[in-house]
C-alpha cells in the first residue's frame, strides 16, 4: 500500500511540498534573515529586492511597520503547520469515532449521528467557525478547537457511508459467526478496510485547515495579533497593494503552495489506494 503510493507522481510532488513547508516551519529561526517582529520605521513598505527601490537586505520587501516579509512568511508557516496537523488529527478522531460507531451499531445511534451531521451541514463552515471563534475568543488553541468542531462532519459523513458498505460485506458477518467480539470485528475487519479513506481524508483536511486558519486570521478572528499568521499578512498587505505587492502576493502564494501540496498528496493517495469518496470542499 505504501510502496504503491510512493510510485505516484502526485504523492511524491505533494509530499515534497509538504515536507518543505514543514522544514521551513521547524527551521524558521535559523532560516529567517531578520527577527520577524523587528520594526524599522525608516524602511517601511519596501518592494521586493529585484524591483525598483528594493533593498537586497529585504528579499521580499518590508511591511508597513518595516518588518521583513520573508522572515514573517517563514514564521507564519509555524502557525499554518500546527493548525494543519493538530486540527486535522482532532477532526479525524472525533469524526471517525462517531462514523465507526454509527455505521457499525446502526439503529438509533446512526440516526442521531446522521441528524447531528445534518444540523452541522446546515451551517456554512465559514459561518460556523466565525461564530465559534466569537464564542471562544482568538488564539491558536481556539482556532484548532473551532476547526475540529466544524470539520469533524467531513470525516463522519464520508466515512460513515463507507463503514456501512463494509459492515454489510459477508466477511464481517462471517467474523461474527465464528465468534469475533464486536471490538475485534471492528478493529480487525472494518477499520483496516477504511484506513485508505481515512488517510486520504486526513491529508485533504490538512489543506482545508490551512485555508480556514488563514480566513479566520484574515478577518482578525484567528490567532492573537502578536502571533504571525499568513492570513494576517494578507489583511495587512492588502492596503499596500500598489507600493509593495509582495506583501500580499507572498502569503497568498505560500497558502496556495501549502494547500496544493496537501491536495496533491491526498489526490495521489486517493488514486493509488483506490478510494472512492464524494468530493466536496470548503
Amino acid at each position: 500500500m505504501i510502496r504503491r503510493s510512493l510510485r505516484s507522481g502526485r504523492v511524491i510532488a505533494g509530499g515534497l511540498i509538504v515536507l518543505a513547508v514543514l522544514a521551513c516551519a521547524l527551521a524558521a529561526p535559523w532560516l529567517a534573515p531578520h527577527d520577524p517582529d523587528e520594526q524599522n520605521l525608516l524602511t517601511t513598505l519596501l518592494p521586493a529586492s529585484w524591483q525598483a527601490g528594493g533593498d537586497p537586505a529585504y528579499w521580499l520587501g518590508t511591511d508597513s511597520l518595516g518588518r521583513d516579509v520573508l522572515s514573517r512568511l517563514l514564521f507564519g508557516a509555524r502557525v499554518a503547520m500546527s493548525v494543519a496537523l493538530i486540527a486535522a488529527f482532532g477532526a479525524m478522531i472525533v469524526g471517525a469515532a462517531l462514523a465507526y460507531l454509527a455505521g457499525y451499531v446502526g439503529g438509533w445511534l446512526d440516526w442521531l449521528v446522521g441528524r447531528a451531521v445534518d444540523v452541522w451541514m446546515s451551517f456554512p463552515p465559514v459561518i460556523l467557525s466565525l461564530i465559534l471563534m466569537t464564542g471562544l475568543g482568538t488564539g491558536l488553541r481556539n482556532v484548532i478547537l473551532a476547526i475540529v468542531l466544524v470539520d469533524w462532519t467531513r470525516f463522519c459523513r464520508v466515512l460513515r457511508s463507507e463503514v456501512i458498505v463494509v459492515a454489510r460485506r459477508d466477511y464481517v458477518a462471517a467474523a461474527r459467526l465464528v465468534g469475533f467480539s464486536h471490538w475485534r470485528t471492528v478493529s480487525r475487519e472494518i477499520v483496516p478496510a477504511t484506513i485508505p479513506l481515512v488517510v486520504t481524508l486526513l491529508t485533504l483536511e490538512m489543506g482545508i485547515a490551512v485555508v480556514v486558519e488563514a480566513i479566520l486570521s484574515f478577518v482578525g478572528l484567528g490567532v492573537r495579533s502578536d502571533q504571525i499568521a499568513w492570513g494576517q499578512m494578507i489583511a495587512d498587505g492588502r492596503d499596500a497593494i500598489y507600493q509593495a505587492p509582495w506583501n500580499l502576493l507572498a502569503p497568498v502564494l505560500a497558502i496556495f503552495f501549502t494547500v496544493a501540496g496537501f491536495n496533491l498528496l491526498g489526490d495521489g493517495l486517493r488514486r493509488s489506494l483506490d478510494v472512492r469518496m464524494t468530493e466536496g470542499r470548503e
Partner: peptide
C-alpha cells in the same frame, strides 16, 4: 456455521488464506 454465497464478499481481501480459514481459533 455458515458458508456464504459469494466468496468475493465473504473473504476479507486484506487477510491471508491461512488466517481466514482459522478465524474461529483467532476468536
Amino acid at each position: 456455521q455458515m458458508v456464504f454465497q459469494d466468496p468475493q464478499s465473504a473473504l476479507n481481501p486484506r487477510r491471508r488464506v491461512a488466517a481466514i480459514m482459522t478465524q474461529a481459533m483467532e476468536a
